[in-house]
Amino acid sequence: MQKRVRTAVFPVAGLGTRFLPATKAMPKEMLTVVDRPLIQYAVDEAREAGIEHFVFVTGRNKGVIEDHFDRQFELETTLETRGKTKALEELRQDLPSAGRTSFTRQQEPLGLGHAVWCARELVGDQPFALLLPDMIFKARPGVLKQMIEAYETVGGNVIAVEEVPHSEISSYGVIGRGAGDDSGFAITEMVEKPKPADAPSNLIISGRYILQPGIFDLLANQSRGAGGEIQITDAMQTLLQSQRFTGVKYQGRAFDCGSKIGFLTANVAFALDRDDIREGFVAELKKLNVNLSQ
């Protein structure tokens, strides 16, 4: 029987330079898609999948993330006094239970692999999920829950993947596909940003992982890779030599909110999915009368 995945790690120390000046004083993870911060979507996905411990790897000027996942008694009292019980209940539902959140600091911007390594003492000797908050998904069930279902069958390490056109794969980490169906197949190799001609497939890593704790020992001694940073993919490539990696081609739609186009598209897609604002939003879009053929 596999050890349960109870802990999730959220790397939130990035500077968000692609969204300056909006992120000069506000963490990029607090940018909102409709009316929810990006980090809230990732936490919601983790809670749906049964995660019990939420570990945030933060950096300078990220205190607002910790505040977001804390109670604000003045706000709650005001809402209660004004009879805004629905808003109050929604705020309380969004919060993990007391004692379920932990925060640690990545003191230098040394890459995703280093951010994950910074969480080692909080994770301990247990498998854990890794969720990149830049990536949000419209998926039912959520992507991490789909991955947990695969993990409970095969164990080991699990990575969410999606197909992209071959012309785009040089921007991503790409995996080689072995035996198995879309809900869980063997990963045979991983290549970071290959040329299209050298790529083993058109399946890219999509910002959701389930990893065994052995990754921490590898990250502790990992040489700096692309961009002079400690890359999680480099450590996973080493771990692949001794442990099983399973790919899950998830059912759903991804939005890369680390890019302006992905972020804007996510806002439109999630707004159109909201019964309370869809009709009015569609009406406003029609007023724009945009000629998309230009």
Rank of each mutant, 00 (worst) to 15 (best):
G228M: 15
E162A: 09
H166S: 15
I232Q: 03
Q241N: 12
E229N: 15
I175K: 02
I210E: 00
L203K: 03
V191W: 01
V191K: 10
E168C: 08
R253K: 11
Q222E: 15
L219C: 05
Q212G: 06
H166P: 10
F185N: 01
D182W: 12
R208W: 00
D256T: 01
T246F: 05
A254W: 02
H166V: 06
A186W: 01
G227M: 12
I204L: 09
G180N: 07
S242N: 14
Y209H: 12
S170L: 06
L239D: 02
M190P: 04
R177D: 02
D181Y: 10
S223E: 13
L211R: 00
Y250W: 13
Q222R: 07
S242Q: 13
Y250A: 01
S170P: 04
G225I: 08
G214V: 07
K195T: 15
G225H: 08
Q222D: 09
V174L: 06
Q241W: 07
P200L: 05
G176V: 01
P200N: 10
D181I: 09
E192V: 14
P196L: 10
I187K: 00
T233G: 07
I175L: 13
G252M: 07
F255S: 05
A199H: 10
A226S: 14
A235K: 06
P196N: 04
Q243I: 04
Q243V: 05
I204H: 02
L239H: 01
G225Q: 09
A197K: 11
A186L: 12
V174F: 07
S223F: 11
R253V: 11
D181F: 15
P196S: 07
G173V: 07
V161E: 00
N221H: 11
S183G: 04
A179F: 07
Q251I: 06
A199W: 04
I187C: 03
Y250M: 06
Q222F: 02
F245A: 02
S171R: 14
P213K: 06
S242W: 04
S170D: 12
S183T: 15
S223K: 15
Q231S: 13
V248T: 03
F185K: 02
V161D: 00
G173H: 05
G176T: 00
G184K: 03
K195L: 14
K249V: 10
I210N: 00
I204E: 01
A220N: 08
V248L: 05
S242A: 14
G228T: 13
A254S: 12
T233A: 04
D182V: 13
P165H: 05
Q212A: 05
S206R: 05
A186T: 08
E163N: 14
N221K: 09
D198C: 07
I205K: 04
Q251M: 06
Q237K: 15
R253S: 12
